[in-house]
């Protein structure tokens, strides 16, 4: 592996690490209105937050298991789809996470500006 490959692999790992936490926030925020997996993925991609199906669906399941999301199978466009939305607990956690994220963002901003 060349040094430039090393650097790009390192950057990629750090980038993924940075995105991981933000994804939860983005998904919870998006699900304040009900969506099914595919539209959620499209909305996130349109807003610059691309997420692979292999990451999104396991994440949705985990958030549902944690009680942050509710889901139900329903027919739409002549097909059964699984719709997700934020649970009351999810809404409460989202508010706290958003406050935390804003505080972090402000701190980071100050640190970066020196």
């Amino acid at each position: 592996m060349t040094p430039s490959q090393d650097t790009s692999a390192l950057f990629e790992n750090l980038r993924l690490e940075l995105r991981r936490g933000s994804l939860v926030l983005a998904v919870l925020a998006c699900l304040r209105s009900e969506q099914y997996g595919y539209t959620l993925r499209k909305i996130l991609a349109d807003l610059g937050m691309e997420i692979e199906e292999g990451t999104l669906y396991p994440l949705l399941r985990r958030l549902e298991t944690q009680g942050l999301l509710l889901s139900e199978w329903r027919e739409a466009d002549k097909r059964n789809k699984r719709f997700y939305k934020l649970s009351p607990l999810g809404a409460e956690v989202l508010e706290k996470l958003l406050a935390e994220w804003k505080a972090l963002d402000s701190s980071l901003d100050q640190i970066v500006k020196g």
Binding site: G37, Y38, E53, Y57, R79, R82
Partner: peptide
């Protein structure tokens, strides 16, 4: 335990795409 449910959801996602 989750096989059928996951496959059902992925099938739907792929069909939509």
């Amino acid at each position: 335990a989750q096989r059928d449910d996951i496959i059902r959801e992925l099938r739907e996602d792929i069909q939509s795409e």
